[in-house]
């Protein structure tokens, strides 16, 4: 019989923990690039490993080995701390999400609120990084990061509160467990699902809402001065954010690791995560970019009332 401590250590470092999450992040990046390429009638990464599946790994190691430039004018401490901070903050919420079982590795009543808080902190860290790099493009990008957060944050929170009200639990694991006995919340709360999906797209800064890093107007937005190791960490944390967005949708609205006939619940979680990443990439390939004022206007005029309407319907 293996002692409980060793099992917990293995869980933290190997299977639902660090190693698995790294693989998941790289896999989601590859799938995203490949899907967008297919939509545009291209092949996408092809020669790096089988079907180019090692492409994100190659990008990561190449960036790690490159020169790490810190601009003279930059605030050196903040500039160096921000990539690590963003990576840590975007990885932490993934431990609160039940992936292989009905309860997560760490869970307590109220971890949904912790997840929302951490997703906001990530944005603040991004803003600090943009400000510390003292580049005119990154400053504009940073301001847009903050402005966009003012738009999508509130409807996203309201949309995520919907499942919490229905299941009378403020923890993600509790919401998943209540869907195990009831019905998936995507069926009872389709409006909330749609609002959460759009807001998460804005949180991920993906194409209809990629105003903060709009490549054709402000070069690379808030990322513009980061190079080498820092860029590698930031890109990795963006992949973690994608995984986090997908798994939040899966566990709040699609029933988490619940299923009928497959042997292990994590298989279900993985399949649903793939569906969510497919939706997110699909939208990325189909839309053009909004302007920042259009993002804010849309979020306040349409998303917030819709999210509130969903809450009213849930409460009634």
């Amino acid at each position: 019989m293996v002692p409980q401590e060793i099992v917990t250590l293995l869980q933290v470092f190997l299977f639902p923990g660090f190693l698995f999450l790294f693989c998941l992040a790289f896999f989601s990046d590859w799938m995203d690039r490949k899907l967008v390429a297919k939509f545009q009638n291209r092949y996408g990464p092809l020669y790096t490993g089988p079907k180019g599946i090692l492409q994100p790994v190659a990008d990561f190691f190449k960036l790690l080995a490159k020169e790490d430039i810190i601009p003279i004018a930059a605030d050196k401490t903040v500039f160096s701390v921000v990539p690590m901070l963003v990576l840590a903050l975007s990885m932490t919420p993934l431990f609160l999400i039940p992936m292989i079982d009905y309860s997560a590795l760490i869970w307590f009543e109220g971890d949904l609120i912790v997840i929302m808080f951490i997703t906001t902190l990530v944005i603040v860290a991004m803003f600090m990084g943009a400000w510390a790099s003292t580049n005119r493009f990154s400053t504009i990008g940073g301001m847009r990061v903050g402005l966009q957060m003012l738009g999508y944050e509130i409807p996203m929170t309201i949309a995520m509160i919907g499942p919490a009200i229905s299941s009378k639990s403020l923890s993600v694991s509790g919401i998943v467990q209540s869907q195990a006995v009831g019905i998936w919340y995507v069926i009872t709360q389709p409006l909330g699902f749609a609002v959460a999906l759009i807001c998460l797209l804005a949180h991920l800064q993906r194409v209809p809402f990629d105003v903060p890093e709009a490549e054709s107007e402000i070069v690379a937005g808030w990322l513009v001065e980061f190079s080498g190791k820092k860029l590698a960490l930031l890109k990795l944390s963006k992949n973690f954010e994608l995984v986090l967005a997908g798994s939040l949708l899966v566990s709040l609205f699609l029933g988490g690791p619940l299923g009928f006939w497959l042997p292990h619940p994590s298989v279900y979680f993985f399949l649903k995560l793939i569906v969510c990443i497919f939706i997110l990439s699909n939208l990325r390939a189909l839309f053009a970019r909004f302007r920042i004022d259009q993002v804010l206007e849309g979020a306040w005029k349409y998303l917030t009332p819709l999210a509130l309407l969903q809450i009213i319907l849930v409460v009634i």
């Binding site: 092949y43 990464p45 180019g52 054709s216």
Partner: peptide, 10 residues
């Protein structure tokens, strides 16, 4: 992009 080549702005 088959060869992993991407065009970057910065």
């Amino acid at each position: 992009e088959r060869f992993g080549i991407l065009q970057k702005g910065s």
